[in-house]
Amino acid sequence: MDSHKEAQPKGDFECQLCGLTAPYSYYGQKPPNTHSVVLLEESYVMKDPFVPDKDKFLILGSQCSLCNRRVCVGTECSLFYSKRFCLPCVNENLQEFPLEIRQDLDKRKSHSKSHPSKKADART
């Protein structure tokens, strides 16, 4: 009853790549009631709807540090490597990223090709 007061939704976050939409209640680096945890980027945050504890938060997404597009944290839309990058920007500047990240992207690409049905629905 009293929980909805503190987590008034501020608006809807929508990923400009995949269209994922969810209401966020905070934008910034220090979500309320998170104590010693800080975020390393300005993020759209909601209360984690999947755990009963009302202090737990969920980061939905943030702006790409290169193109400023609003993107979700899903691995098919963006990655974090000291800053947020949307995948189109990463692919444009692939050589700037360490090998581990490039390998990771390759692996993911081949993986999603072998299971196209699982991820295709809403995320293209």
Partner: peptide, 22 residues
């Protein structure tokens, strides 16, 4: 792009985590 200038050159998995504990 200038935005890429500050990327850590040596890979560490912890750079991929977007939060920190004070």
């Amino acid at each position: 792009a200038p935005g890429l200038a500050g990327l850590p050159q040596e890979y560490d998995p912890r750079y991929r985590i977007n939060l920190s504990v004070l």
